[in-house]
Structures are given as C-alpha cells and as structure tokens.
Simulated scan of single mutants.
Amino acid sequence: MFTGRSLLIATKHRKETVIAPLFERKFGLHCFTSDVFDTDTLGTFTGEIARKKNVLETLRDKCHMAAQATTADLVVASEGSFGAHPTIFMAHADDEWVMLKDYRNDIEIVAREISTDTNFYGELISSKTALEAFAERVQFPSHGIILKPSETNCHSIIKGITSHSELIAGFKKLHSEYGSVYAETDMRALYNPTRMKVIEKATEKLIAKIKNHCPQCHTPGFDIGEVKPGLPCEMCGSPTRSTLSVVYQCKSCQHEEEKKYPRGIRFEDPMYCDYCNP
C-alpha cells in the first residue's frame, strides 16, 4: 500500500531528521518536506500563537493544510505538549502524538508517546549568575533557550538561542528595556534534541501500528479501540481496575478481536485491589 509512494512530513522544525529514516527503511517510501505552508499558524511553543484546538484536531488540520498546499496524498505530522505528567505526581512530561493520513485509501493512524525525559522549564531571571545556573540546568547550549520580558509577554522575544554570547547579549538587552527577563527552554524540535528523541519513539509506535493489519480486510492500523478492566486479584479473586483484556478494532471494516491478559499476567497484585487494599 505504501511502497514506492511519496510521504510528505508536515514540519518546519526539522522533524524529518528522525521521522524520514524510519519510514524510508520500513516501507520503501520517499520522504520530503515543503515550505509552501506554515504549521506555526496552528499554534506555537514560543507563545505568539495559541493552539485553538486539541491535539488530534490540530494534527488533522496540519495534515489537511499540507495536503491541500502540495497535493500530497500521504502525510505525516506530529504535535506535542508539555506540562504535568498524567499519572506521576510532580513530574514534567513531554506528550507527543504522531499521525499518518493516507488520503488515497482514507486511512488515519495515530500513535502517542508520553515521556518524563524532558528539560521543559522556565524561570524569572534577575542576574547573570542565575542565568548561567538556568542554562546549565536545561542542558544549554545543546538545547536552545528563549528569553522574553515576562512569562506571558512575548514582545521582543528572542528565540533559538544556542550560544553563550547570544544568551548574555539577549539578557542585557531585555533587562535594560523591561527590567525583567524570563528564560525558558525552547521546545521547538530543532532546538531540543531530547524532545526529538521522544518524537522518534512516537514514530516507532506509529510504524508498529501501521504494520499491524486487520486479519479480515488487511487494512493497516488494526489497533486497540477499547480497554476492559477486571483482572482478578491474586488473593481474593475480585475484579480489579487493572486491564483484563483489550479489543482491537479495524476502522475500515469494523472487525473486532478481543485479547485477554495483554500484560502477560492472569492475576493482579493485591496491593491494587480495592477490597484487599481499600
């Protein structure tokens, strides 16, 4: 279905450096990028343009924008967000989504990777000493820094700082003009190698999903559509909230298959039982 076709990677932040090699090696695709559209119009990490839609809707908009601007019929795009981890208390997380849209065959496949491996951070800086400490903490200069007058003020923003001379000059300029400087990590992929690695992992998950075909109609993307709890407690046998089975669903022919014990265990530890450990 994909061999010999061209895949447009909808990015302006060099994500093709990790996405293209994986797709070309696994599917024999020719990957390319284009500058005839601007994905930043849908939202920016640097704060000038707020993202108006959720991740999935934004991804679809990215793919549609790219397809319409180039007439490509096979597009991949990624979208990320940073903040508190959904399950690990007090941990920052990088939440990356990658979507493949095959307009020729009407296929949409999505994968997600949540990682605590991120340097996401911001701080109000009052001195060069504090600035140098901040830079060391966020792995500068291999990872870029953004400077602006305050956390919410994007006027006179200085982006993509990757050298000490730029960092000091930017700090002096903003401090003299505004009396305050807010420093934050530049989370755009081309300035953040740590984020780029998470995007690569999300892409690997996407490829694994693509390679999983529906056993009935052979459409790619036969994926988990429902997770059923109820794994029995090892001590009392009561159903727990842990996963008992997953249901794979085909978006094309609606075929379903239920697979029990996806974690490879038939009983849950009593510590996760609401009866044994209320």
Rank of each mutant, 00 (worst) to 15 (best):
L8S: 03
T71N: 12
V55F: 07
T240R: 01
H218K: 15
E132I: 08
A189K: 02
F27R: 08
A135F: 10
E256Y: 13
N277E: 03
P232L: 00
A169M: 09
E132V: 05
T11A: 09
F89D: 15
D40N: 11
V227Y: 06
R104W: 01
C253D: 14
A20L: 05
T11G: 09
F140V: 08
P215R: 15
Y248C: 08
I125G: 02
E177K: 13
M271G: 00
M1G: 07
E151C: 05
E108M: 14
I158C: 06
A202S: 09
V198T: 13
I114M: 04
Q139S: 15
T203K: 04
P229Y: 03
L190M: 12
C217H: 12
T116W: 08
W97V: 10
L56V: 14
T243H: 00
A77Y: 04
M187K: 04
C31V: 11
E24M: 08
Q216C: 08
C31T: 11
Q216G: 02
V246P: 01
C214G: 06
G122C: 07
D223M: 06
E226V: 02
F45Q: 03
N212V: 09
S34A: 14
M65Q: 14
G28K: 11
I9N: 04
V138R: 01
E257M: 11
W97Q: 02
V98W: 02
S127I: 09
S150Y: 13
P270Y: 02
Q254W: 09
G43A: 10
Q216L: 12
S176V: 15
R51M: 06
A50H: 14
K201P: 02
F134L: 04
S242I: 00
D274L: 03
I146Q: 02
G264M: 01
K12M: 05
D95C: 11
A169I: 02
N119L: 11
Q249E: 13
H85W: 07
A50G: 06
T118F: 09
Y248G: 08
V138I: 15
F23H: 06
A72T: 04
R263W: 07
G170M: 04
I224T: 11
I199M: 10
H143K: 05
F37I: 01
A50W: 11
Q139P: 04
I145H: 00
K260P: 03
F120A: 08
H13C: 12
S126R: 13
A208W: 05
F171A: 14
N105K: 09
A189I: 00
Y248A: 08
T44W: 03
T243D: 00
A91I: 01
F89V: 15
G160V: 15
F134K: 05
S142H: 15
K26F: 05
I207R: 05
A135H: 10
T185H: 06
S238I: 01
E184A: 07
H64Q: 13
R266Y: 07
K15E: 13
I49Y: 03
T203W: 01
S242L: 13
A202E: 02
A66M: 12
E177A: 14
P278D: 13
K52P: 05
Q68Y: 06
G83L: 10
L22S: 06
G230H: 01
K197R: 10
G221Q: 10
D269P: 04
A91E: 07
I9Y: 06
V55L: 07
E177P: 05
T240F: 00
S163Y: 04
Y178L: 04
L42D: 07
Q139M: 15
M90V: 06
Y261C: 05
T58L: 01
K62N: 10
A135V: 09
A133M: 11
G28D: 10
E234S: 05
